[in-house]
């Protein structure tokens, strides 16, 4: 991928990702409602919510948390930009970690009991999914000999053929990343009895809108990773890849609506077991057939 396509990728991402992410959230809410036997809000509801949040009275619990939240957004955008510019998958993951740390630190800085519990749980979730996320990047490297997204999408082989275990593993931890039940431990769209709004308890108005926006950006590049498993040099592959992304997202919504929240122990145990079995075995097989 040359400079021009990289720049096109970044610009397209900057403009289209929030729109796509917001729509995805709207569709998510509609489908969830239908699964629960409700009619559900309009597809554009997330955007209405977003603009309404922007108009709220500007209040905060301290002078610094907005700074951290803004950094969170900036680095989430940079993470996505690295991805859609065809950049290095490991750099992409490390930048994502940095961004997430800013969100955690923002929650810690409020010194609120609920936000702090949310922050600790968020950290736990990060610890749970990090090995599998890195394994995904390593899997692509072993198949294509390169960590670059641009090399993965122009490769002659379809990733999922060699990485079925890693694909399943990634989809598993995607539930955590998308903040879906049973792993919506630190923060979820529904208030929880013991946690109030967890991580985001002390964020309001514009700050909350920024977090929402960041999540839209985030969800798009997370699905982008799913896309990588299918996309390769064949002309038809991007279409199939997008379809697979949608199916995976639907699956996540289905899981979200069918499971009660689990304890944090289950989150870390299961994610690590998945990484150790599906991920590790896939990697070993790949090494011995390669």
């Amino acid at each position: 991928m040359n400079l021009t396509t990289s720049i096109i990728g970044i610009v397209a991402y900057l403009i289209l990702a929030p729109i796509a992410g917001g729509l995805l959230a709207g569709i998510d809410r509609r489908i969830s409602a239908r699964m629960q036997g409700r009619y559900g809000p309009p597809i554009l509801q997330p955007f209405y919510d977003f603009f309404k949040l922007l108009e709220k009275e500007p209040i905060t619990v301290n002078k610094v948390q907005d700074f951290y939240v803004n950094c969170f957004l900036i680095f989430i955008i940079i993470t996505g930009a690295i991805f859609f510019a065809g950049g290095d998958l490991l750099l992409f993951i490390f930048t994502l970690t940095l961004a997430s740390i800013f969100l955690v630190v923002a929650a810690f800085s409020s010194n609120s009991p609920y936000a702090q519990v949310g922050a600790e749980r968020e950290l736990l979730q990060m610890m749970a999914y990090e090995p599998m996320v890195l394994l995904t990047a390593i899997g692509f490297y072993m198949v294509n000999g390169s960590f670059n997204v641009s090399d993965v999408v122009t490769s002659d082989v379809m990733g999922i053929v060699y990485l079925p275990g890693i694909f399943l593993g990634f989809v598993f931890i995607l539930t955590i990343k998308l903040r879906k039940s049973p792993f919506d431990l630190s923060l979820s769209h529904h208030g929880h009895q013991e946690l109030v709004k967890g991580l985001s308890t002390e964020f309001s108005g514009k700050t909350l809108a920024i977090i929402e926006l960041a999540h839209w950006y985030e969800n798009i590049f997370l699905l982008g990773v799913v896309y990588l498993f299918i996309a390769h040099s064949a002309v038809w592959s991007p279409i199939i890849a997008v379809l697979v992304c949608l199916v995976v997202y639907f699956l996540e919504v289905l899981i979200d609506n069918n499971y009660a929240r689990m304890k944090w122990q289950f989150a870390i145990n299961s994610s690590w077991v998945v990484a150790l079995t599906l991920g590790f075995v896939n990697m070993l097989v790949l090494y011995f057939i390669g």
């Binding site: 409020s110 990090e130 394994l135």
Partner: peptide
Amino acid sequence: FLLVMIILFGSAATLFYWTKWMGKMVAIM
């Protein structure tokens, strides 16, 4: 690959203990 797994899990743990320490200090009281 044993070492690969070791560095993945070790790094995840590293992230956890440093950030919780950092979190303590940034709390505004």
